[in-house]
Design a protein around this nucleic acid. Structure first.
Length: 362
RNA sequence: GGACAGGUGGCGGAGUGGUUAAACGCACCAGACUGUAAAUCUGGCGCUCCAUGCGAGCUACGGAGGUUCGAAUCCUCCCCUGUCCA
C-alpha cells in the first residue's frame, strides 16, 4: 500500500491524496462506510459502490464472534464472503473495549470480553487481533488498542496510552513474523485529551513504523472543540507521507473541520445508523423524517441533493415508510445519508484541488 | 320475546369502595445516537393555568339518578353491543 500526497491546501492543513491498494485506488480525504458485521446495513455491496464508496470498514471482533474468522477464511476471505471486491479496513475490536465497558476487563496482556451475543468468555490480545484480521484478509488492519472513555485523569490516560503503544509494538512484531502479504497495518494514537500524551503516542507509533496512523479515542463524549484541538495538536507531528485516519468521526461538520486539520480518512456509523433512526442529513442541517410536518410534504429530503432517493421520493412517502417500519425505509434513508457523506467528501476533495477549501469552513 | 356476557382514555385491555387522570400494549408527539450490544434507546401523551414542583383547577370509566366522608368500582332505571335459544 502506498500513499501519494497530491496537494496541500494553501490556507489550511487540508490534504488531497491517493491511497494505492491492491484492490484499487482510494481518493482522499475519504469516508469509509461502516459494515461492522460484513455488511453495510441495508445495502448491497453494489449499492454501496454505486454511491461512490471506495473502501468500507468491518469489525474483526464482531466477525470473530460470529460467524468466526476461520469460517470466513475457509470460504475465501471476507471480500469473497460478503461480495465486496473493493478495499476493506478492519477495526480490531479496540472500540469494543470502550463500548462494551461493562462486559470486558483489560490487563496488560489483552482484553477479556463477555460476548454480547451469548455471554461466553472471549479473549483478545494484540496478537490474536492480528491473526483474526489476517484470516479475514482485509486490506488495512488496525492494531488492538485501549480506547479510553472520557473523561479520564491524565494518569489514567497515560497508563492506557502506554498500554496501547505496547500493544501496537506487539502487533507490529507479530505481523512481521509472518509471511508478507498485501495487507497494511495502521497504528492508533491514544492519550485522551492531553496534548502531551498525544504527542508521545504519535512518536512511539512512528518509532514502531506503520503504513498509516490513526487518531483513536476521540468522539467519545469530549466537547467537540476539544476534539478539534486534539487533532490540530497532532497534525504537526504526524508523518506527512502517511495517511491519517480519525477513527469513528463524525458529523458532516466534523469531517470538514478535521480535514482542515490534516486528516485523510474517516469512518462513522452516523450516516447509516441515523438513517435507520430517521435522522436524515441535508445541506440545510438535518431533518427527522418522522415529524408530523412532513406528513403531506411532496418535496424530496433535500432539493439540492443528487442522490437517487431525492430524485424520486417525497418526504411524505419516506415518512410513511418510517412510520410503517417498512424495510425500505432503512434502505432509502441509508442510500440518502451515505450519498450525502460521500458527496461531502467529493466536495472536500474538489475544493482542495481548486484551492477553495476554506470556503467550506465558512 | 327470552338467557347469558359485556360497555374504561384514539384503539386494545387491566382495575371491582379510597395512595386511580386510571397498569400494560398499540397508536401518536418529541429527544438522543460519532472506530454499530442500535431498523435502537429515552421522554411525553384528558383540558387549562402558574408554565418552577411528588404544583393548582376543571373534566373523565355508556346515560340518568341513588348509597357513602369517599364510587370506574355498590344499588335502581334506561340505552347500547356480542353470543345462544325462540
Amino acid at each position: 500500500m502506498r500513499f501519494e500526497l497530491l496537494k496541500t491546501d494553501p490556507n489550511t492543513r487540508a490534504r488531497r491524496g491517493r491511497l494505492h491498494t491492491s484492490r484499487g485506488v482510494i481518493e482522499t480525504p475519504v469516508f469509509m462506510p461502516v459494515g461492522t458485521l460484513g455488511t453495510v446495513k441495508g445495502m448491497t455491496p453494489e449499492q454501496v459502490r454505486d454511491l461512490g464508496a471506495e473502501i468500507i470498514l468491518a469489525n474483526a471482533y464482531h466477525l470473530f464472534l460470529r460467524p468466526g474468522h476461520r469460517l470466513i477464511e475457509k470460504l475465501g476471505g471476507l471480500h469473497k464472503f460478503m461480495g465486496w471486491d473493493g478495499p476493506i479496513l478492519t477495526d480490531s475490536g479496540g472500540y469494543q473495549v470502550f463500548s462494551l465497558g461493562d462486559l470486558r476487563r483489560i490487563d496488560d496482556e489483552g482484553v477479556s470480553f463477555r460476548s454480547h451475543l451469548d455471554g461466553s468468555a472471549q479473549y483478545l490480545t494484540p496478537e490474536s487481533a492480528v491473526d483474526i484480521q489476517r484470516a479475514l484478509g482485509s486490506d488495512i488492519m488496525m492494531v488492538l488498542d485501549d480506547c479510553l472513555a472520557y473523561p479520564a485523569t491524565q494518569q489514567k490516560a497515560a497508563q492506557s496510552m502506554r498500554r496501547s503503544m505496547d500493544w501496537a509494538a506487539r502487533s507490529r512484531a507479530h505481523l512481521d513474523k509472518q509471511p508478507p502479504r498485501e495487507q497494511a497495518m495502521f497504528g492508533i494514537a491514544q492519550g485522551s485529551v492531553f496534548p502531551g500524551l498525544r504527542r508521545e503516542s504519535i512518536e512511539r507509533l512512528e518509532q514502531i513504523g506503520f503504513d498509516g496512523y490513526a487518531i483513536g479515542g476521540l468522539g467519545v463524549g469530549e466537547p467537540i472543540p476539544m476534539m478539534y484541538d486534539m487533532v490540530e495538536s497532532m497534525d504537526g507531528i504526524m508523518q506527512v507521507d502517511r495517511p491519517r485516519y480519525l477513527m469513528g468521526v463524525g458529523t458532516p461538520v466534523d469531517l470538514v473541520q478535521a480535514v482542515a486539520r490534516g486528516v485523510d480518512m474517516f469512518d462513522c456509523v452516523m450516516p447509516t445508523r441515523h438513517a435507520r433512526n430517521g435522522h436524515l442529513f441535508t445541506t440545510e442541517g438535518h431533518i427527522v423524517i418522522r415529524h408530523a410536518r412532513f406528513r403531506e410534504d411532496p418535496d424530496p429530503i433535500d432539493a439540492s441533493c443528487g442522490c437517487p432517493v431525492c430524485a424520486k421520493y417525497s418526504r411524505a412517502y419516506l415518512r410513511h415508510l418510517f412510520q410503517a417500519r417498512e424495510i425500505l425505509s432503512s434502505v432509502l434513508n441509508t442510500i440518502h445519508n451515505l450519498f450525502f457523506y460521500l458527496d461531502t467528501m467529493r466536495k472536500i476533495r474538489h475544493f482542495i484541488e481548486s484551492e477553495r477549501f476554506s470556503e467550506l469552513l465558512a
